[in-house]
């Protein structure tokens, strides 16, 4: 099977039961994507597929051939971290760092959802074109990404600083 990950092409001989998460971690060495529950409850395995965030543990790898998969290794460039990664370090948006790649990939997908006007449970007007990048919107939309160390405040600060600025410019 052939996969496109972080703009590169990869071949893998796979058991049909293999999840996208296990493909990444066990077969291709993209260990930045984390396994926290393997049942879609923690968000640690979040990756971007064609720009949208998904739980890679709930995805069968075989279904993702020919799609553009982005993992934490593809966020930022070899020489420079993504602004959100720098903001996570600055605002201490993690402690152990295990949920962090999932939080970062999820936040990137989430920011795009806000820009596209996708409403959430706390959006006041469902048809609003300009959704506020408020702390409440961030918290609601990031609630699928668990952090047991409790770095939530730092994560929200890092996400808001990065994307609110980007949205304003």
């Amino acid at each position: 099977m052939n996969f496109t990950i972080n703009e590169h092409s990869y071949e893998a001989e796979l058991d049909n039961r293999t999840s996208l998460l296990d493909l990444l971690r066990n077969h291709l060495g993209f260990t930045g994507t984390k396994k926290g529950c393997d049942q879609g409850a923690c968000g640690a395995c979040t990756v971007l597929v064609d720009g949208e965030r998904i739980n890679s543990c709930l995805a069968l790898a075989v279904q993702y051939q020919g799609r553009a998969i982005t993992t934490i290794e593809g966020v930022g460039t070899a020489g420079e971290m993504h602004a959100l990664q720098r903001a996570f370090v600055e605002h201490d948006g993690f402690q152990c760092g295990y949920c962090t790649p999932g939080q970062i990939c999820s936040a990137i997908g989430m920011a795009d959802e806000i820009k596209r006007g996708v409403p959430s449970a706390v959006t006041e007007h469902v048809a609003a074109h300009n959704i506020d990048f408020s702390n409440e919107e961030i918290r609601e939309r990031m609630s699928g990404n668990l952090c047991r160390c409790g770095a939530y405040n730092g994560i929200v600060e890092a996400v808001r600083e990065t994307f609110a600025e980007e949205l304003a410019s």
């Binding site: 930045g32 994507t33 993992t71 934490i72 370090v89 962090t100």
Partner: peptide, 16 residues
């Protein structure tokens, strides 16, 4: 001070 291992962790390079 920011965490010394911060850049590794946010890039998914810390090896568990």
């Amino acid at each position: 001070a920011s965490r010394i291992d911060g850049p590794l962790k946010v890039q998914g390079k810390a090896r568990f």
